[in-house]
Design a protein around this nucleic acid. Sequence first.
DNA 1: GCATGTATACTTACGCTTGTAAGTTTTTCT
DNA 2: AGAAAAACTTACAAGCGTAAGTATACATGC
Lengths: 229, 229
Amino acid sequence: MGGTPRQPEPRAHRRNARGQGGLLATEIVAGALAIIDRTGSDAGVTLRSVAREVGIAAPSIYPDFANREAVILAAARYVFDDIGHAVEGAVTGLEDPVERLLAGCEAYVDYGVEHAARYRVLFSRELPGGPSGPAGPTATVGTPTVLLDDRFPPAGGEVFALLVDAIERCADAGRCRGDDPFGTALGVWVALHGMVSLWTSLGGFPWPDQRSFARHLVLAQVGIAVAQQ
Amino acid sequence: MGGTPRQPEPRAHRRNARGQGGLLATEIVAGALAIIDRTGSDAGVTLRSVAREVGIAAPSIYPDFANREAVILAAARYVFDDIGHAVEGAVTGLEDPVERLLAGCEAYVDYGVEHAARYRVLFSRELPGGPSGPAGPTATVGTPTVLLDDRFPPAGGEVFALLVDAIERCADAGRCRGDDPFGTALGVWVALHGMVSLWTSLGGFPWPDQRSFARHLVLAQVGIAVAQQ
DNA sequence: GCATGTATACTTACGCTTGTAAGTTTTTCT
DNA sequence: AGAAAAACTTACAAGCGTAAGTATACATGC
């Protein structure tokens, strides 16, 4: 697997101040994301490759992360937050609830398509932290359901909460049915996620226009008649 | 990474008959799928692990596959075929077009949820073979579009063709709009794929009933009013 | 019935990367 | 100056892909 013939491992990293050792954790996550973006998957994220990226020695990762998987999970958490910020930025200032919903959804799709590699990492494994235990609210479709509580959601929860909120605003304005915002949001999320996932996997597919397809999916799931364009 | 302390690599494989060397290719793919099913991802699929699974020496894979990636792509192709057979088996004998559509979609989701690991492998990488070149039909949404031609689709094409056909039957029977079967099928596929992908990644999520949720997604995308259950 | 050519698969080996343990040096702050 | 945090160096035991050469069993022709 011969690549470069053995770099002398340049140490470009400057030691952090005392008590600020945790700063390195941020740089480690950033390094992992850089590798994911560059290589297109998390397969190349190893303790050594991340260490090279950051400019530290591989064992220096251990004080911050137990192992390779912990690094990747931290990167996934960062990406979920990043998506949340992108969506929030896209909807702030919009008044019309339907436009607000659509703008947020488009921002979600935009992020996923533009950062295909890091988006894919989010859902390439079983994510931990959910209320898989005894109880927890169970969603239903077609009938009202319990809303998400504190324990939910493990990952991507903030983004999903934004979506539920946007749909509730539409319902409050009488623009869509409001009997089951959770179930409706679930349908929208599922459709948008499917779009991003397939879009970035099947590069050769004759995809329609990204923006109008995303709007089409959302409106169909929410139950608003699709405008003939 | 200490596991078992060095097995003597038992050779359980019986040499194939002359002219039937290609049989090994089938066993190699089966071995790769077994590893995927057992470990939950394709990360553990290496030439050596597959060889161990099959009972051959690692270099014996080379006559059939150029490298590790080729093995995984062959496994993906097998899984696409397998899904196609599952869907076809679920719809044969059904007369009502809407029931036929729903049954096929449910079978798709069933397969994906039941074989989560191998389904995930299908879309965990950029799949080759599409008409990414100069032309190829471009789908639109809301207006009729060119149907898929011979060059399309690279992967999962047979399954997608079944879906387009099922939707055309619904349209012919006047059960849904028929102006854009390709675009409608795309919406359905995207939604179902998103459901499977999220379902198997977010194990802790309070998911609704699998069957009714799948039907809900399909009917919403096709534009048939969702029956209050 | 037996030699033989050949497809089939094996053995050995090399150079590389990986995770991680153990102990050491360097920097920073008091 | 001294203590302690931060990060390094070295080392080991694996696993990896793959190149090169070798053994084995089968179908065929004599």
